[in-house]
Design a protein around this nucleic acid. Structure first.
Length: 427
DNA sequence: AATCCTGTCAACCGCGGAGCC
DNA sequence: AGGCTCCGCGGTTGACAGGAT
């Protein structure tokens, strides 16, 4: 557990980054990739620590960042994912291409928490607030900012006319699916169910995300009907009822219909994007609360249908060819947002900062890159030292998805899949 | 107009895990 | 085995903007 060496160094700049610093960092990573972050400041000529450079790149300079306000669908997805994952912002961010964990964390702390409380839902437990809570009692968690306690409107919960059923549903699902949170001893002290614990599902969720190559899995098939939408959003996203659709995780014959009562309250959209789930043909567009209602198909039984080899697949950056198409169609990437979403349009005008201009220099080439076929991807993986425009993407892929890691993750996921039926035998 | 309050966002801090030697 | 380095994560802080008083 050593302290990062750069932390001890003196004469390092702190605070906000200047455009010049941003440019230096951008130029360096564009040309050379980041490699070892601790060496980046020196090589880039920056008086910053490597950690700071990494953070700046990840949170601000990365060319794939989606800018602008969060959509309602994104907020809904964050809420649903938070119910499952808790404060694992990085994992939540992995389900939201183009968004950073920091961004999501800020949104949660500044906005979503308040909204949930106003709906009478405890943002930490995702259960209905107690009467005491709703009367404006102290926040339920010590990490709460003091300013956050004042936003509880005692009358707001009752004022939301259609919330009662929502609350009862939420309460019901929460009772069935207690969210274990290390930050909440009261939940941690709850007796753990003998059914597959949350962590197991988290494993699947993260494995699904981290090992896109799992499409090669030849393990037993599982059907996971997710029939318990949280329905947090009473503003949108629930009216079409699509989120009520079952989502089937098709992996052969294991019909696990009872799992719907023990599954974490994760939305089909969340899982479809994170796990590459295969929707049944009769439900080609679930229209749920996912990112742009992205129809995200991925047939595990047909590797070719994934549009890529097993070494690719979807990932957090949405670079997998097939999913990229969907994602592009749904305006995940900033350069495809332009002129497509009204709110984004506003923000493009209002929030255009100089890094956006920098990003603009990437737009054309990167868009072209994204339209390239799998062969490019393969080439990119192989071309480990090309630092032209394609090199950016290459280094990006190298950093994000080394094939060895993919293989290892795939193997691990295969094991997890094989473990699942055993786990469910205890139900 | 000045001050205060609040919300948002970028960045820092400290910790733990992983890998290497 | 233990120490070191690096990376990544989550919590927190502080600057800033905009609205309210």
């Amino acid at each position: 557990m050593g302290r990062h060496s750069c932390c001890y160094k003196q004469k390092l700049r702190k605070g906000l980054w200047s455009p010049e610093e941003d440019e230096k960092l951008m130029n360096h990573i564009t040309k050379h990739g980041h490699g070892c972050w601790s060496s980046v400041p020196k090589l880039a000529g920056l008086q910053r620590c490597g950690k700071s450079c990494r953070l700046r790149w990840i949170n601000y300079l990365r060319p794939d960042l989606k800018r602008g306000a969060f959509s309602q669908e994104e907020e809904d997805l964050i809420i649903e994912l938070h119910a499952v994952l808790g404060n694992r912002w990085s994992q939540i961010a992995a389900q939201l291409p183009g968004r950073t964990d920091n961004e999501i964390k800020n949104l949660w702390n500044s906005c979503i928490k308040k909204k949930l409380r106003q709906k009478g839902i405890d943002p930490n437990t995702h259960k209905p607030l107690t009467e005491a809570d709703r009367r404006g009692a102290a926040p339920t968690v010590s990490t709460e900012r003091t300013s956050g306690s004042s936003d509880v409107n005692p009358s707001s919960a009752g004022a939301l006319g259609n919330l009662s059923h929502l609350l009862s549903e939420t309460a019901q699902s929460s009772m069935l699916l207690p969210v274990y949170d290390k930050n909440h001893p009261e939940t941690a002290s709850l007796p753990r169910p003998k059914v597959p614990p949350k962590e197991l599902f988290l494993d699947q969720l993260t494995a699904g995300h981290e090992s896109p190559s799992s499409c090669r899995s030849s393990g037993p098939t599982l059907y996971f009907p997710f029939q318990q939408p949280l329905g947090y959003s009473n503003e949108c996203g629930t009216g079409d009822g699509a989120s009520m659709n079952s989502l089937w995780f098709n992996q052969n014959d294991f019909n696990c219909s009872t799992i719907s009562t023990v599954m974490p309250p994760v939305s089909p959209s969340a899982l479809s994007t994170s796990m590459g789930l295969n929707l049944p043909p009769e439900n080609p567009r679930h229209g749920g609360t996912g990112i742009g209602n992205t129809p995200f198909y991925w047939d595990g039984s047909n590797p070719s249908s994934s549009g890529s080899t097993g070494s690719s697949g979807s990932n957090s950056m949405g670079f997998e060819p097939q999913s990229t198409t969907s994602i592009l169609e749904n305006s995940v990437f900033p350069w495809t947002d332009i002129g497509q979403e009204k709110d984004t349009r506003v923000h493009l005008v209002e929030e255009l900062k100089w890094p956006d201009l920098l990003h603009g220099t990437f737009a054309e080439a990167t868009t072209a890159m994204q339209n390239q076929s799998q062969s490019l991807y393969d080439d990119v993986i192989k071309a480990e030292s090309q630092f032209n425009m394609e090199g950016i993407c290459a280094s990006w892929f190298q950093n994000q998805q080394p094939q060895q890691q993919l293989q290892a993750a795939s193997d691990m996921y295969d094991k997890d899949l094989q473990r699942l039926p055993l786990s469910f035998e205890h139900i």
